[in-house]
Structure formats: structure tokens, C-alpha cells
Design a protein around this nucleic acid. Structure first.
Lengths: 108, 108
DNA sequence: AACCTTTATCGTAATATTACGATAAAGGAT
DNA sequence: ATCCTTTATCGTAATATTACGATAAAGGTT
């Protein structure tokens, strides 16, 4: 098979997993960190910053955009990317919710 | 190609990405939530809980173990799994570090 | 219109992930 | 010793991801 059985899990589990999956590549972590540092920037700036080709960076950007973590606005021939504040907050909340629900008990 | 260029990124970026990737599947989110709820439990309990075959659950457990998020201890013929508190804390810190570094500025 | 810049998309190849059944391995129980 | 239970691993098939170069598309500039 190879197709994740998403329909068997809750919406929350799927959403969190999708976001986490989007964070699951060092290039995308680097892109997000760069966007945070720069507030917003042109796609080309990211391509310059990363050790990857333009097409690969574009794919990573699409991946981040697909789950809603970033948004791009057209500005002439270039596209300005930035983090979507609402999606970022939602990610933060559901991650915090998961991470804080574990309270360091003795292990088995 | 198809092989992630991990060597081009920092250790921190790679570590966080690896952890996030491990969270990037609803079944693994469900496993972690179950482990948190139960504190610790037998592999078989997880298999019962999830809508996946025993072998698939075992693979997901191996994935979580590979990045260190959970640990298993042998107890007779069964294996008791639980969350690794230290790894959990590290994950929490590096995620919080990333998530908190973004301060809702105006987008482009 | 012809050109340049910028970014997305296509095509392709390599690798990784996901899932399952079947089998092996490890350890108790009879 | 022979079983039964429990979990890992193997084998396999389908799908997804990653990366790149090449090309297309979109929008300025001359």
C-alpha cells in the first residue's frame, strides 16, 4: 500500500501530523527561521540563503504553503513570502497541548 | 536523488526536523497520546487501540524509538513502552524556541 | 515587440515511507 | 519438550518525498 490511513484518525491528529510533517525537513526549518528573522522576503532571497536549487526551494515553499504555515503575495514578478500568523498560532497551540499533556512520571 | 541534504544544515535544524518528522503521521500522534494517557503500556495494547496491523504499529514504534522519543523495556515476552522524559523535554524546548521566536508582525 | 528577471511547474531518477501478511525470535506456561 | 503469547523483522507492493535541470509563465523594462 504505502498510503497513510488518515481517515481512521481524528481531524486533530491528522492536522497536527500534517503540520509536523511540514516541519520534518531541515530545509523547511531553515526557511521558517529565515522568514522569522527577515519578517518577510522574496523567494529569491531564500534560494540564495539555502544550499539548494531554485526548483527545490520552490517545492519546499509549496509544501509549507500547502499546510498553510506560510503565505505568498505577488509583488510584480516576484513573490513575497511570510509566515501566516493564524496558522502559526494554531500549530503552537496544538503542539503545546500535546507536549504539556505529558507529566514526567516514572517509566516502565 | 531523493536523499535529503542533511549535511548542509545545522545539527539543531536536523534534530528538530527529525523529531518533527517522527510526529508527522497521525498514527504516531495517536501512539504518543495513548502513551501519555496510560503512562506506560504493552505494545499489544497499542495494537488493540489503533486501526492498524501489528506489524505496522511495530514499525511506527520503531520510528518513534529511533529518534528517541519513546523507550521500550523488555518484560517477559512483552515489551513495555513509554515516553522518554528527557527527549520529550528537548523536543519541547526546541519547538518552543522556534515557535516563540515569531512575533506576529505585519505580513508582506 | 523583444528582452530580462523571477518563480512555478514539468519530467525524471533515486530514495523513503507506509502498509500488510508471513515468518522468526524470545520467553512463559503446561 | 511442546505449546502459546508477544513482538520484531522480512518480503513485497504501492505511494510519497527529495532533488535537479529544463521549461513555462508572469510581469517588468527598454
Amino acid at each position: 500500500m504505502g498510503l497513510a490511513k488518515t481517515e481512521e484518525f481524528t481531524l486533530e491528529q491528522n492536522e497536527l501530523a500534517a503540520m509536523a510533517k511540514a516541519l520534518g525537513h531541515p530545509a523547511r526549518i531553515a526557511i521558517l527561521q529565515f522568514l522569522i528573522r527577515k519578517q518577510s522576503c522574496i523567494c529569491g532571497d531564500i534560494v540564495e540563503e539555502l544550499p539548494l536549487s531554485q526548483s527545490t526551494v520552490s517545492q519546499h515553499l509549496m509544501e509549507l504553503k500547502r499546510v498553510g504555515l506560510i503565505q505568498g503575495s505577488i509583488s510584480g514578478p516576484r513573490i513575497c513570502y511570510c509566515i501566516d500568523p493564524k496558522a502559526w498560532l494554531r500549530l503552537k497551540q496544538s503542539l503545546t497541548n500535546l507536549l504539556d499533556s505529558f507529566q514526567d512520571p516514572a517509566c516502565c
